[in-house]
Nucleic acid binder design. Sequence first.
DNA 1: AGCGGAGATGTTAACGGTCACATAAGTGAC
DNA 2: GTCACTTATGTGACCGTTAACATCTCCGCT
Lengths: 361, 361
Amino acid sequence: MTVTEPSGDQAWPRRRPSSIRDVARLAGVSHQTVSRVLNGHPSIRDVTKSRVLAAMDELQFRPSRAARILSRQRSQTIGILAAAVGAHYGPARCVSAVEDAAREQGYYASIARIGSVAPHAISAAIEDLLSQDVEGIVIVAPRTTVLSLLAELPMNVPIVAPQGDPRSASGIPVASVNQEAGARMVLEHLIRRGHQRILHLAGPPDWNDAQLRLRAYQAQLKEAGLPASPPLFGDWTADSGFEIGRTLTRATAGCSRKELPFTAVFAANDQMALGLIHAFRVAGLDVPRDVSVVGFDDIPESAHFWPPLTTVRQDFASLGARCVAMLLDAIGRAEDPAAPQESSSAVVEPQLIIRDSVASV
Amino acid sequence: MTVTEPSGDQAWPRRRPSSIRDVARLAGVSHQTVSRVLNGHPSIRDVTKSRVLAAMDELQFRPSRAARILSRQRSQTIGILAAAVGAHYGPARCVSAVEDAAREQGYYASIARIGSVAPHAISAAIEDLLSQDVEGIVIVAPRTTVLSLLAELPMNVPIVAPQGDPRSASGIPVASVNQEAGARMVLEHLIRRGHQRILHLAGPPDWNDAQLRLRAYQAQLKEAGLPASPPLFGDWTADSGFEIGRTLTRATAGCSRKELPFTAVFAANDQMALGLIHAFRVAGLDVPRDVSVVGFDDIPESAHFWPPLTTVRQDFASLGARCVAMLLDAIGRAEDPAAPQESSSAVVEPQLIIRDSVASV
DNA sequence: AGCGGAGATGTTAACGGTCACATAAGTGAC
DNA sequence: GTCACTTATGTGACCGTTAACATCTCCGCT
């Protein structure tokens, strides 16, 4: 199993890669001509161009991004500040979407992941991005702590955040999925099916999306004249959903099924819903017969949970695209303040996916 | 809901950021002194140093990475070629792990994601990375097509791949989880529980891990004198697991439970196992009573599947760390061919996680 | 023929760091 | 007092690219 580097020990000579001047010499032109070929300048004769191209090919020429960034004073790069990616479906999808959208617009994307939301970690990540001359930053770290900190940080590039609170006063432009609409759909669905005692299993209180969903849950219930129980807070993981489900069922261990103090739970994401369902089943409760459960996100697996999970789908791809559009617009305005402001409304509508985890009562 | 950029319309002036020369002027020293402060050079008087530091602070100085890369001829950056990240748990975790490990070693990581494995997409991604002067590349694209293509591509930096086949002749150094051991654990577990007719739901045939697990499945059954059914191929998704489960149960619709042509299925990942279980349940088959199912990966949700899934845990964090260690070692050798070769064995052992999806027969 | 303008190319100077080398002052040995 | 050596700092070139401006040629127009 040892992997001694095999025969192909090319001993990468680390020879200096060829520059436009090397190409120029070989092609018998000036380096500027090579640069022009590189950038598709119109006034280059075809013969010259093909000579240059041939030389590039022969020398395995590859333009240096560092040099290019240094010389024009722009990097064609946007930064992504990412918290908790990998652990969480939404943010992870969001980052991919932003990356793709950026590339599509001819921009590079550079990601700075942060493990904690400690102020120094955040400003270090921002410094990191800024030192790469990013022209703008997308904040995929939808936590109020991060956003409010950021609002104070001296920043000389535009920033945008997906999944933030559109109404927050942080001053950071925001593109977001309409969380309120998502929560409303869920509750209307539940209420229409006759549920009256609906619990909410929320995400951590300092996450924007968690806050919005919680507020929408409360508002919606109030509007319907139904009681809102104090929210339960999980940490987005299935494990936390399970734990909370356990305490919930233990607390009501004596009750017969008909007497449960709730008939439905709205979980703030699919993973917690999964854990919750697991806990219910362990306690002998059937979903949806005894309790209905709704999730949020529509992760690819939720169609195959047991029971298949009713949930809310968020279109992360278009969220990412909107974010990038807003950011690029802001960048454009910063360069040329005369430019007209693009529409900066950016709300993506979610979609209720009805499956089998909700029953009528 | 519109987000007109609020009052804080600082109209980022896009003023030229300050350079070491600006700092030098303000501090009354030469630019070189500033550079030395920046790099922690020993022979700088404390007074000078603090003057420079103060000037940096006042000017909001931030060193330009592009300039630094250009002037020393190295980027302190490794590239990551990532295929199918976001969609797949293993690769995604792997990328994160490599990033973390790189940062820990003082390197930056730059990710190039590819959507397809078409040759031009791959070489474009490699070009992209190379143009950033990456000093080495980690290939998180564990498909035979990618690796064999890469082996032929002219490359003047070291590369390493996690999740590749250690025995393959591609000539690419590989760090990997011991897939064979993982598959062996699964089958021994199943056989010990009395299973004799064990199916394998494999991943796409051009994925290294899928191949390795399939081969190990076949070898192990042969060794035990048991019949190996022709493998079923999914695409890693729960959807594909479900589809295959449906055809499987439809084909055996007439059979009573005791007459199923198999008693256990070894799925090549947890998602497919989930879809499979779903299909079984839809067909009235209970897991594990009627069929046992084992997965692979131990995604965080699998403890909360129903039934909780027996699976194989892979330690992606240490896989990433080993990869980076190997790569950095290779980079070091490329610079200084005299340097001794570090141990380049890099096999991470997996772990069987026994839960409730396997019954004895 | 002379002139203006466009097309194709060359020349030189940035960009913001680092490197190799030069310089100046201080320190101790003889 | 001078030499060798260290410490603290400055000077100028260089990395690979683009920007600004210069040059030269060819063309049509008057």
